[in-house]
Design a protein around this nucleic acid. Structure first.
Lengths: 353, 353
DNA sequence: TTGTAAGCGTTATCAC
DNA sequence: GTGATAACGCTTACAA
């Protein structure tokens, strides 16, 4: 079976007995008012009967709008991202946009590569969940006037809108919870300090401790090189080896927290009996682990839909006059909630602070 | 800051003092041999100094190749898919392709919508993980000569290559394992029968039971309307209510199996003490549930990379003469392996079959 | 209200 | 080996 020859605007115009330009006008909602109702009807009927589908590529070449958005994430297999990406896709789809997806593994080179590739395909904007605090890509996008929406992470100074959880408040909830259980010597496994979440949660941790009148023992802070199970495991071991009598760990995110589970098991310790663990993100299925992880939650899917919305607004705004993107950049902080589960309990032998 | 004006082929040609056509030839590897080494070098230098990036959209219009592939999946938030999608994306990226992603929720209308949208964007092919056993989309793609690779599911008669696990053998492993533990009355929660996995695993289940000389009590087969936790819960309840003394459940996939956990808990039963449960897919993190789920495993990521490979081959082949896609359709069955974990144990009171 | 014509950036097909 | 020219399918001033 040989491919059917694609039907073009010219075919539709011919069948309707009008000029292609007229057909184009009738087929586009914005310009439809320009053509008489009579001919418009004829054209639409013709298009319909031929099964006409506009060639987006040609249109894109002309209008410099592809109705396509690039989505940059570190790694789709990190359970945090699927709901976010779905949210983005759903919101974009509602307006006729489609999403190009690219995993970067937080690798600058790979990030650059997918960025370039998407740019070459004339994406109308980027939703970016990979932003390091300083990123040449963002600078480039800014100077090229490409809309960017930051997700989950924030980067200063580019004037891009962002959607994210209130990290400092979130980790504060975790600390308060642990303190209220009676914990005093609380450790923190900090995420990478070159991404906003790592930095803000670390800062939030020290602030929250201070607010509770607790000193932060620097030895009770471990620094993870990445948000991974392995790093969580490694950092937790390091903390245990220091033998500083900590009774709880507030981890920088869920992966690090689950990494702690492994370290505790290796050390023959029980969670939460010996050590309480709190995560951050409340990833899907994390409530079904053994033990169910207490974690700081926020609406992932909604992060995606909000990011999609901001992107669409940004694209629309960029169309207008010489609109400077980022003029009135909207930064959205979604409220965190603590989901208390089985990984936290009062310390074994509460020490009077 | 005003957007930099994009540099085009004409600019490069001008700087190099050649005609745009020549510049084009020099810039494309396939046609580079046509131009003298001297001028080629000059052109490349010019392109480099200007930071030239080919406009893929324009190229696409001309060549009818977008170097873009549409990926259709039911739902990205189903943990089975992220590794597969990553595999696809990684393989495609290695050849300069990017992936458009679309969630369909197994909804025909939505599927049609994203399909059309991607088609309008001139994707070079579709990797499709949503195929029902009969799908108008597939027929349409086939007749339009659009390359399609089926993933995880199979659909007969279109001649499309497919990558999937050997479902019948997989469920056979599960049954053998349960039988060897001493189970005789084994229930099956069958997935939707209009998708290949549901059908094949069901068939595989009855075959395997027969091979062990065990009768399949029809009342011990429950039919799930979807691969969801809710349906697993519902089906498992139904099975329990029938009170037929089953001691083990071989579920159609992991979601259904985890749904069983909920039903068992509600019924005050313990897994694996009262009822053993086996899943299928070995989703990420499923080994960390309570109890860790025994499941039929296969290499998800590799499913993705193989699908990507097949897609690239198909695209390459379609380029040639009037190659009929699906002539030598390659069907890849990856080998399943059983991961035995804490959700299976000998029955409480083994009944002599 | 509709037609004309130019052009988006590239590549394919001719000549030279 | 290189240049000229047309064309991919569509939109959009401008003209009628």
């Amino acid at each position: 079976m040989r491919p059917d020859p694609p039907v073009t605007l010219k075919d539709v115009a011919a069948l309707a007995g009008v000029h292609p330009a007229t057909a184009s006008r009738a087929l586009n909602l914005e310009t439809r008012p320009l053509v008489s109702g009579e001919t418009a009807k004829r054209i639409l009927a013709a298009a319909d009967s031929l099964g006409y589908r506009p060639n987006t590529v040609a249109r894109s070449l002309r209008t410099r709008r592809s109705h396509t958005v690039g989505v940059l994430i570190p790694d789709l297999t990190n359970p945090l991202f699927p709901p976010i990406v779905r949210g983005i896709e759903d919101r974009l789809a509602a307006d006729g946009y489609v999403a190009l997806i690219g995993n970067t593994d937080s690798d600058d080179e790979r990030e650059r590569l997918v960025f370039e590739r998407m740019r070459a395909r004339h994406v109308d904007g980027f939703v970016c969940a990979t932003a390091h605090l300083s990123s040449p890509l963002l600078a480039e996008a800014a100077s090229a006037g490409i809309p960017v929406v930051l997700v989950n992470r924030y980067a200063k100074g580019y004037g891009f809108p962002a959607v994210s959880v209130d990290n400092e408040r979130g980790i504060g909830l975790a600390v308060s919870h642990l303190v209220s259980l009676g914990h005093r010597r609380i450790a923190h496994i900090a995420g990478p300090q070159d991404v906003s979440t790592g930095l803000l949660r670390y800062r939030g941790f020290t602030d929250a401790m201070a607010a509770h009148g607790l000193a932060v023992d620097p030895a009770l802070v471990a620094h993870a090189a990445a948000y991974s199970l392995e790093e969580g495991d490694r950092c937790c071991r390091a903390l245990l080896e220091r033998d500083l009598g900590c009774t709880a760990v507030a981890a920088g995110n869920d992966m690090l927290a689950v990494g702690c589970y492994a370290a505790l098991e290796t050390a023959g310790l029980s969670c939460p009996r010996d050590i309480s663990v709190v995560g951050f993100n409340d990833m899907p299925f994390i409530d079904r682990l053994r033990p169910p992880l207490t974690s700081v939650s926020f609406p992932h899917y909604q992060v995606g839909t909000e990011a999609g919305r901001l992107m669409l607004e940004l694209i629309a705004a960029t169309g207008q006059h010489g609109a400077v993107p980022g003029d009135h950049a909207e930064i959205l902080y979604l409220a965190p909630e603590l989901r208390v589960r089985g990984s936290t309990a009062p310390p074994r032998a509460p020490d009077a602070s």
